[in-house]
């Protein structure tokens, strides 16, 4: 039977081939796939396992250990709110509540239009100017509730 690969999966093959000879290649491979595709699908896990001569369970074990890796598609904009102490000292607990209320989702969920997914993160290293959020690869400091709403409403034009 011929297996039809969608284009993301053929990219996955290329990514694995280009990185698999590095020492300790699994994390670089997972990062590269997630950057390219947005998540690491079960089919990709099988491919990685075969090419690295490991079992799918081992690959899944590594993926599930790290908060960043995901096996389902994320929202177009992945919002991460810093929950760590320095942000708490500047009001992040209130921001977390506001964000969940504003988006009407909890952590590890996605809005029904698939535009936003919401996750927590433990420290973005911007501790003197919290509360902080990250949207995709962009970092935003001093996030009041109003600024949060404003950033989200402008996100389409700001994060092209």
């Amino acid at each position: 039977m011929k297996i039809e690969f969608s284009s993301p999966l053929s990219n996955v093959e290329n990514i694995i081939d280009s990185l698999k000879n590095k020492e300790g290649s699994l994390l670089p491979i997972l990062h590269a796939i997630q950057k390219e595709v947005g998540y690491i699908a079960p089919k990709a896990i099988e491919r990685i396992a075969t090419k690295l001569k490991q079992t799918p369970a081992e690959i899944h074990g590594v993926i599930s250990f790290y908060h960043q890796f995901r096996t389902t598609p994320p929202g177009k904009y992945q919002i991460k709110i810093c929950r760590a102490e320095a942000c708490q000292a500047r009001g992040s607990r209130a921001l977390e509540a506001h964000a969940k209320d504003f988006l009407a989702i909890d952590y590890h969920q996605m809005t029904s239009d698939k535009k936003f997914s919401l996750d927590s993160v433990y420290c973005l290293g911007n501790c003197a100017t919290g509360p902080n959020i990250r949207i995709n690869d962009e970092l935003y400091g001093r996030i009041s509730n109003q600024r949060f709403d404003q950033i989200l409403s402008n996100v389409d034009s700001d994060l092209k």
């Binding site: 994390l27 997972l30 074990g61 590594v62 790290y66 908060h67 890796f69 433990y122």
Partner: peptide
């Protein structure tokens, strides 16, 4: 080499495991 959001990987032996491509 990039970590993947796991605080424990700041512990040196967990970090080495992670660098080797394993759970930290």
């Amino acid at each position: 080499r990039l970590g993947a959001e796991a605080y424990i990987c700041g512990e040196e032996t967990a970090l080495l495991e992670s660098l080797e491509g394993k759970r930290g």
